[in-house]
Design a binder for these strands. Structure first.
Lengths: 217, 217
DNA sequence: TAGATTGTTAATCGATTAACAATC
DNA sequence: TAGATTGTTAATCGATTAACAATC
């Protein structure tokens, strides 16, 4: 009965479909064809139909797709209405920004704890949520069983904390610390975010544009 | 003479090579084989050799690659030692975090201006850099000619600001506002960053792991 | 020279696109 | 019914992997 494996490329596109369909729904648009959606998203209609069909026939011949229904289906697939218990470790500039900028409920997550190793930061709070000291991580996890952890800690601290947390039952890491997080334990999910990598592709692109022939700098 | 086009997949991997080689160099490692590097990075040796050869023979048979030299070559390709004039618009939580968290010099960028539309934010400063009001953007651009802009503004404001800036000579946008930035002007580079999309792939992954058969929630 | 490892070509694999019959 | 648009198969394209001759 296990439906066939979905390819990573398709999965990476799902959040984007979800986002676009949400905006269409917000505009009150009821139905859309793969053709029209492809124009708006910069994909081919073929690809959209191919992608959506991995999960079953959401459309209707001669009509297209019902925007709201399709969005809900994709949301279901992604698990946006779940409440994954999530903690965030490291409340420097980036940690604080992530905590307040990302909409956790919209991502199927519930932020249940904030942690920092700095005694001047621990004890304070962020948007009404208390920041605990990292010394209390074990106790907290044994009680609250978070399954997802966001790491906004310095690079050297990340592997140690990740190891500790995976031992305490955390099964997925959203890692913002510099350096890729590599865990031996199998079955632990890691999503490494490297903002600088993204910026560098722009720097590279500018280079190609402005001085396509030049080799030196 | 135009060397053949490099594929986007290769380009997206370059920053990661650069990062890993930097760490190896910092550890004092002088040479590395594609085999050993592949183990550390989780790629195949074949792919590494294939990737690096897009740009010319950086290695040496029977020896491998010189870590420092290879890193420098890739840095050169990415343009990390350039000083792209860069501005950042929107100094909310995320904008402030980006400004202080990302190492612009290491990405070939130089942050030359900060802007916000909130009169209570404009006039202040961040890490010693003054925050200007967005009303002064045009004048600033005409004088300082930034070529890259980082947008950390609300979704509705982004298209308007991007259009204004592209008219003023900005050729690349690093967009953190929700929603994909779509510009008509050709030749303008856009890198949309959607942190929520990245988190959603984790949510999805957890779903596959824990309840692979379940369809409902 | 012998051993190691690259550069590069050929083979495989996966993802995207095109085409069209099925059907609303 | 006629028109539109999907679901799906087949064709193409690109990216990854395997293999090995070149060479340090």
């Amino acid at each position: 009965m296990a439906k066939q494996e979905i390819s990573p490329s398709v999965i990476r596109r799902l959040p984007r479909y979800h986002r676009f369909l949400g905006e269409l729904a917000a505009k009150g648009i009821v139905r859309i064809s793969s053709m029209e959606l492809s124009r708006q998203m910069g994909l081919t209609a073929s690809q959209i139909r191919q992608d959506l069909n991995c999960f079953g026939g959401f459309g209707q011949q001669g009509y297209g797709y019902n925007v709201r229904a399709l969005r809900d289906e994709i949301g279901q697939i992604l698990g946006v209405s779940l409440h994954r218990r999530t903690i965030l470790v490291g409340l420097g500039n980036l940690g604080r920004a992530i905590a307040s900028h990302v909409s956790f409920p919209a991502c199927g997550c519930e932020l249940i704890g904030l942690f920092d190793s700095n005694p001047f930061v621990a004890g304070r709070d962020l948007d009404g949520m208390p920041i605990h000291h990292t010394d209390t991580l074990s106790g907290f996890c044994r009680q609250e069983h978070p399954e997802l952890a966001i790491l906004c800690v310095p690079e050297q601290a990340a592997p140690r904390i990740a190891k500790q947390l995976s031992g305490l039952g955390v099964r997925a890491f959203w890692n913002f610390s510099h350096g890729d997080l590599q865990l031996d334990e199998p079955g632990i999910l890691v999503e490494n975010v490297h903002l600088a990598d993204s910026l560098l592709t722009l720097t590279y692109g500018l280079r190609q544009q402005s001085d396509p022939e030049s080799d030196g700098e």
